[in-house]
Design a protein around this nucleic acid. Sequence first.
DNA 1: GTACAGATTGAG
DNA 2: TCAATCTGTACT
Length: 189
Amino acid sequence: MKLKRLSRKFYTRKTLTVAKDLLGKHIIRKIGSRKSVGKIVETEAYIGPKDRASHAFGGKVTPRNKTEYLKGGHIYIYLCYGTYWQLNITTEKAGKPECVLIRALEPIGKVKSKKIASGPGKLCKWMKLDKSFNGEDLVNSKRIWLEAGEKLKKQQIVSAKRIGIDYAGIWKEKPWRFYLKNNPFVSYF
DNA sequence: GTACAGATTGAG
DNA sequence: TCAATCTGTACT
């Protein structure tokens, strides 16, 4: 089966659409001569200025979140709780601070632990992602990119409330978390 | 310069 | 259920 790297067009669509379509896609992370591959099984959408849970709420720009304003297909990564990295993929056009948080991966290949990437902090640790990937272009990068994985049926996709943003008021109720039904690798059920 | 909160995780 | 842990952000 020949896999194709996702093009810019895939990322520059509506954030909620991209968040759903990212499920089942493969993330390829090249470390030296080795490759780690993980299937995306859980995502969350963050819709720029109007989303209280987004770092770009109110349209503010800071050194930390400015990569969130890049056009779709870039990595927005940041450190939370001083310990855990959060991997995001930007969407929409330049100037629109919208992105998709990758919450969980299903490891593909020789991986011992099944729970190695079942959480946004853990998957970054597994893939050795850090600050240096902030602003990385997934369309052109040689160390990390996305490929079309298996096709999913609509019934396999479940939407739910987002996680860990209780402070966000009504926005925490938005069903902007998407994951694969009955997949043991997602972080919450 | 200093205080403080956070898109989490793992142990109890 | 709860604390560890530390960077960016806001405030003095």
